[in-house]
Amino acid sequence: MENTIVKAENYNSYFGDNHVVKDVNISINKNEVIAVMGPSGCGKTTFLRGINRMHELIPGATSKGKILLDGENVYDMNAIYVRAKIGMVFQRPNPFPNLSIYENVIAGYLLNGIKVSKADKDVIVERSLTSAALWKEVKDSLHKKGTFLSGGQQQRLCIARAIAMQPELILFDEPTSALDPISTSSVEALFHELKANYTLIIVTHNMQQAARVSDRTAFFYMGELVEFDDTKQMFTNPADQRTQNYITGRFS
C-alpha cells in the first residue's frame, strides 16, 4: 500500500532460545495512531523494540524477518540512523538529569555530534516544545534542569526530544503508566495533535487509553499478533474470541 510507512514481514524476536515474537505481519499507515495491547509477556514491547532495533542491544537477543520503513528493511540500515528516524518514548520520563530543558530537546544532535547553528537550535527547540504542547509552560525557564518539571511535563519533554530529530515514526512504550490522570490526559491530547505530522505506535496496558487514542489496535497474545483492526471494531465486536476475552477481562 502506497500509504504504508512501516511494515513487518514474518518478523520474529528471540531472547536466546525463547521465541518471544512469532511471525508477525503488520502494515501501518502514515499518520495513524496504533495501539498495541496484550497481557504481560505477550511480546508487545519486544515487538516495539524490534522496530527501531533496540531489541538487539540486549545480550542474547536476536530477530528474524523484516521491518520495512518506507519499503526499506531497517536491518539493512545503520542502526543509529534507524533510531533517529524512529523516535522512542519510554514508560518513565527520562530527561537527562544534568541537562537543561533546552539541551534535553537537542540532546539527539549533541550526542550524535551533529553540528547545528545556535539560531537553528533555537528554532528546533521552540518547534519541538510547541509540538509537544510544552512551549508555553517552559519558554521562560529553558535553561533550568529538565528534572525540575512535573512528571507529565517531563514526559512531554521526552516527546519533544524525540520530535526534535524529525522522526517519521514515534514509538511509545506505556508512556503514561507512571503519570497521574491529569498528566495522562495531557499526553493523550498530545497524541491527537502529533498525529497530523507523525505516525505513532503506542504500547499500552490501559485498554481504555487504547480505545481513546488510537485509530487501529493490535492485540498480541503469546508472541502472536492475534488481531489487528479498527479500534472501534475491536472494542465493539472483535473478530477473535481471545481478543474479546482479553478486553472484557475474561482472560484466564
Binding site: M207, Q244, T248
Partner: peptide, 8 residues
C-alpha cells in the same frame, strides 16, 4: 467501562 459483548 464495558466493551465488546458487554457493551452490546
Amino acid at each position: 467501562c464495558p466493551v465488546a459483548i458487554d457493551l452490546r
